[in-house]
């Protein structure tokens, strides 16, 4: 191993030190605290019971883990959260792909404007945008009345749009769509037109050009977008809280409930750890698939 000159090493630490410190203080340390908390006993009035109990013994146990593993309701909620996040990711992918292609193929002078439109929603507050959906999906809004009058013609019972799984999914897709569009666009924009010309010259029609050239070359962007959508969608609690019905509680809501309402910190910690591990496992899986299929180092540059 080569040893960098001391000036270089100091420079490297000066550059990477502050973000590293930030991550240690606000990510690594809290994670450790959470892992420790998951083995402790909930306090009588919330929080945690003392680490050393009255008899002077160290109070560490796996009760919270046992509870998660023995009461199936929690695992069901966890699975339901994975399902919602998966469906959200898939719908985002289906909606974002054509949009990203459209932006990448539009004349250069319009691309920045179109990208700006994609990220425009970020300019207003996340919660306000969710509340806006309450109005859009509300029982007296045009959308619900239109849907229900159509259902009425078919003789079906009217359905509420708000406070339903439908409302949760619509809003999950809405919130996460830009996170899928951006990495896809960044990938597609670099594609070399010569490859598509070559494919066409070699006899490929429009479908084959997409399916055999564009799509496989865009997989790194697909994986990046999928991870950026799936992971936050898995832990979200605000959307089911505001727009969901009684059965739309997801793992994020459960965790929030443990910390703020039930005040069972050890169990909340266990649920958080499960969520973190699931996200890590999926991100690792995506990276592995990406390396295996995309081992060509991204699209060839012109």
């Amino acid at each position: 191993m080569s040893v960098a000159p001391i000036g270089h090493r100091i420079g490297r630490w000066l550059v990477s030190g502050p973000p590293l410190l930030y991550l240690v203080v606000f990510f690594a340390a809290p994670t450790l605290i959470m892992v420790l908390a998951s083995f402790r006993t909930p306090g009588e009035f919330g929080g945690l019971a003392p680490l050393i109990d009255e008899s002077g013994k160290l109070d560490l146990n796996v009760e919270a883990y046992t509870r998660f593993l023995t009461e199936p309701i929690y695992f069901e909620i966890f699975l339901k959260s994975v399902w919602y996040a998966l469906v959200t990711t898939l719908i985002c992918l289906l909606l974002a792909y054509p949009l990203a292609v459209l932006i990448a193929k539009s004349p250069k002078k319009y691309r920045d404007l179109l990208l700006l439109l994609v990220i425009l929603p970020f300019w207003s507050n996340f919660l306000i945008r969710i509340y806006a959906w309450m109005i859009i999906l509300g029982p007296n809004a045009a959308l619900a009345r239109a849907v229900n009058s159509v259902l009425g013609w078919w003789g079906a019972e009217p359905v509420p749009l708000l406070f339903s799984s439908f409302a949760v999914l619509v809003c999950l897709v809405y919130v996460h769509l830009p996170f899928m569009v951006l990495p896809l666009y960044a990938n597609l924009e670099k594609h070399d037109q010569a490859l598509l010309d070559a494919a066409q010259d070699l006899g490929a029609n429009a479908w084959h050009r997409f399916w055999r050239i564009t799509f496989p070359l865009s997989l790194p962007g697909v994986y990046a977008g999928a991870a950026l959508v799936f992971i936050p969608a898995l832990g979200i609690f605000a959307i089911p809280d505001i727009l969901g019905g009684p059965n739309d509680s997801l793992i994020g809501n459960l965790i929030k409930q443990q910390f703020l309402e039930t005040r069972d910190w050890p169990f909340g910690s266990v649920l958080s750890i499960v969520l973190t591990l699931a996200a890590l496992a999926l991100a690792g899986f995506a990276a592995w698939v990406g390396r295996r299929n995309g081992g060509f180092g991204g699209p060839e540059r012109a």
């Binding site: 070399d192 490859l195 010309d197 070559a198 010259d201 070359l217 995309g294």
Partner: peptide, 20 residues
Amino acid sequence: KPPEARPVRTVFQSYALFPH
């Protein structure tokens, strides 16, 4: 006739090999 329907093939300057 679109390029894919012509019995004509091109060798491109940039080679345009499919990298994947």
